[in-house]
Amino acid sequence: MEPYTATEIMALTAGSLVQNNDILFAGTGLSMLAATVAKRIHAPDAIVFFETGGIDPSLEELPLAVADPRVMVGTSVNSGLADALSILGHPKFRTIAFLGAAQIDCYGNLNSTMLGTYENPEQRFPGSGGACDAASLAYGIIVFMQHEYRRFVNKLDYFTSPGWLSGYNSRREAGFLRGGPMAVVTNLGVLKFDDITKMMYLDQYYPFTDPETIALKTGFSLDISRAKKCSPPKEDELKMLRQEVDPQRLILGPMPG
């Protein structure tokens, strides 16, 4: 078995959650990899668009930013934020957004703004960008997280982007027309949300870890009873990711070992 890194299996796993014909809202970093992976492996008709206005670019070189000139080439349309962000909530489209965050709670609500408060700030993150918009308006979101106790929290320091709010039917009752988190892809496994309670549970764990370790790294009580072991990445997929998607390892980082 070819050794692989957590980032590599994250990108491939997240990519596999995409369906052909999905309209993907990609951010920076891992989400760029996952979207590109999906398009090259099993969802060639998936459309990738960026909040900056780049609609379905050819992505011959990996963009490092949503405003990278690489999102402006081979596009169907080059537009702007108003146009791109209005696609998110269009009821005609199954728009799936990839988002990252600094903190997540058990209902998939996200913090990408700060730790502490405006009065007593402890740490500052970039802020919503388009994350709150995607979480509010898209058909669904897939979240990338580093699986750490301090990031999987009972209560967010700042609530930037709405997930399932307080579970059950609360999202619809709050006035949202659709959406909600579909999955959380971490460096240890994949978490999903219960159909009824909308609480997070462990769906899959990577071959190099186990459900108990993951529960210990989660700051809230996590249902691990439904967890299945995930298969390691296929060699041809790994090769494609390394040789075609991110040959400079700009996002993948160092090779394994």
């Binding site: 909530g89 405006y118 709150c132 509010s136 609530f159 930037t160 709050a174 006035g175 949202f176």
Partner: peptide, 13 residues
């Protein structure tokens, strides 16, 4: 509809 229930609508800098 963007931002309902979030701290973007609840907290003030």
């Amino acid at each position: 509809k963007s931002g309902l229930e979030s701290d973007i609508v609840r907290k003030f800098g």
